[in-house]
Simulated scan of single mutants.
Amino acid sequence: MARLRIAILGCGGYAGVHAQRLRQRDDVELVALCDVKDEITRAYADYHLADCPTAPQHFTDPAAMYRDAAPDAVFICTPHTLHFKHAMQALDADCHVFIEKPMVTNARQAHQLKARADESGKIVTVGYNSSCTPELQYTRNCIRTGELGKLELVVGHISQSWMAFTLGKWRQEPELSGGGQAYDSGAHLLNSLVWSVEADIDQVFAFIDNHGTKVDINSAINIRFANGVLASIAISGNCPTNGTYMSFIFDGGKINVDGWSGTWIEVFKGNRRIKYPPIVGEPVTPDDNFIDAIQGNAEPAATPANGVVQSELMDAIYESARTNAPAKPRRQ
């Protein structure tokens, strides 16, 4: 079987992780790098790909990259507000598309991208860790099957010194980021929520503190899903201790889990902790899930359908915080 030809669009910080993951597979070939300046792609290649037997081509124009390098798939690692344009362009170039989180930065774009992805028949995934872990997959299955009864409540938090380490960078510029910590690291927790509950958002009431910056740093978010599940999520971007915690509360038990990367889980049936919950399988990276899905060996984990619900949630969060009132998603 011919190796998949992969391009990376956006050669900033986390794109290096993708290079290292892709290099561990012998069924892919990294054929192209693209960023706004040639020196960015050159520095990226020198640092991450210096010992690769075949050097990728370098581009500053995505259209030229698709035309001249003809990749089968692209990893989009550009600033958040550029994701929609770049993903649509990649689909028009007949590429499978991996998008770093968040998928896009408003619900209108999310619906348009999902429709285009469905029409194209290409694999489109969003780079979330937790949905690729057996811990979160087990949690979602318990919700689906009712093994622990009916899900009633979800509470969670994520903390990180986000404000300090993004100071002076594009993540604190709304025209590039689309928002702050809730759209960046906080998106992992919010994706774990909507990916697991699998219901539309009914109503949101949110408070936001920008801490004097242009974007949200801390958020307190209350959510009611259309299926009646209630959720309360706190997102901290000004804490020196990194961490996350989610609790899915059923009428017959409870699951506590790492909602950021699914590294641990506690399961309670009734008032008894299950010592060895039946967690099956090993975690995979979002990169591996994407490649395996293209090859027909896996189901895509985080999809445009999940991105639509999360985008509707984010729009409602920001509207509620702006109006100081409950907000409902504006569906297309």
Score class of each variant (00 low, 15 high):
Ala182Leu: 12
Ala63Val: 06
Ala327Lys: 10
Ile291Asp: 01
Ser177Pro: 04
Val257Ser: 03
Leu167Trp: 01
Lys214Tyr: 08
Ala231Gln: 04
Gly13Glu: 00
Lys37Ala: 08
Pro240Arg: 14
Asp216Asn: 08
Leu190Lys: 03
Tyr128Phe: 14
Gln203Tyr: 01
Tyr128His: 13
Gln137Pro: 00
Ala199Gly: 13
Val31Gln: 03
Ala50Asp: 15
Ala301Arg: 14
Val155Pro: 00
Trp162Thr: 05
Ile221Asn: 11
Cys95Val: 12
Ile123Thr: 15
Ala69Tyr: 09
His111Leu: 12
Gly270Tyr: 03
Ala2Thr: 14
Leu189Lys: 12
Arg21Glu: 15
Asn297Glu: 13
Gly10Val: 04
Glu198Gln: 11
Ala302Glu: 12
Lys328Cys: 15
Ala50Pro: 01
Thr213Leu: 14
Ser196Val: 03
His80Arg: 12
Ile76Lys: 04
Asn238Met: 05
Ala15Trp: 01
Ala32Phe: 09
Asn297Gly: 04
Leu230Pro: 00
Ile201Gln: 08
Thr244Ile: 04
Asp51Trp: 04
Val257Asp: 02
Val124Trp: 09
Asp287His: 02
Ala187Met: 13
Ile249Met: 15
Pro134Arg: 09
Val126Glu: 12
Thr285Arg: 00
Leu313His: 13
Gln310Tyr: 13
Trp195Phe: 12
Thr139Tyr: 01
Gly259Gln: 03
Val280Cys: 05
Val204Gln: 04
Glu319Gly: 05
Asp92Pro: 04
Asn210Phe: 04
Asp258Pro: 03
Gly10Glu: 15
Arg171Thr: 08
Leu113Phe: 05
Gln160Lys: 07
Asn222Asp: 10
Thr213Glu: 01
Gly178Pro: 06
Leu167Lys: 09
Asn289Ile: 07
Ala70Glu: 07
Trp170Val: 02
Thr125Asp: 10
Asn289Gly: 12
Asp27Glu: 07
Pro278Phe: 08
Glu152Lys: 14
Glu266Gly: 05
Gln310His: 15
Ile249Lys: 13
Ile265Gly: 06
Gly168Asn: 07
Thr241Asn: 06
Gly179Ala: 12
Gly127Thr: 05
Tyr183Thr: 11
Asp251Phe: 09
Gln137Thr: 08
Val194Cys: 11
Trp195Met: 03
Ser161Cys: 08
Glu39Ala: 10
Thr139Arg: 00
Ala2Ile: 15
Ile6Met: 15
Pro79Phe: 06
Gly168Ala: 02
Ala117Asn: 11
Arg116Cys: 00
Ala231Arg: 02
Ala231Lys: 04
Val215Gln: 11
Ala90Thr: 03
Ser320Thr: 10
Pro71Asp: 11
Lys254Asp: 07
Ser196Met: 06
Ala19Trp: 08
Ala199Met: 10
Ala2Glu: 12
Glu39Leu: 14
Ala321Thr: 13
Val308Asn: 10
Ile143Gly: 10
His96Gln: 06
Trp264Ser: 13
Thr244Leu: 04
Val257Glu: 01
Ile265Ala: 05
His80Ile: 04
Thr60Pro: 03
Ile40Val: 03
Leu30Ile: 03
Met1Asp: 00
Asn242Asp: 13
Phe207Lys: 06
Ala87Glu: 02
Asp38Ile: 14
Cys132Ile: 05
Trp170Phe: 13
His18Ala: 05
Ala63Met: 11
Gln310Leu: 12
Asp216Gln: 03
Pro56His: 02
Ile208Val: 13
Lys254Ile: 05
Ile99Gln: 10
Ser261Ala: 12
Val197Gly: 12
Ile8Asp: 06
Leu113Gln: 02
Ala115Asn: 07
Ala19Gln: 11
Leu113His: 06
Ser247Lys: 14
Val124Lys: 15
Arg5Cys: 04
Ala302Asp: 15
Ile76Pro: 05
Pro300Ile: 00
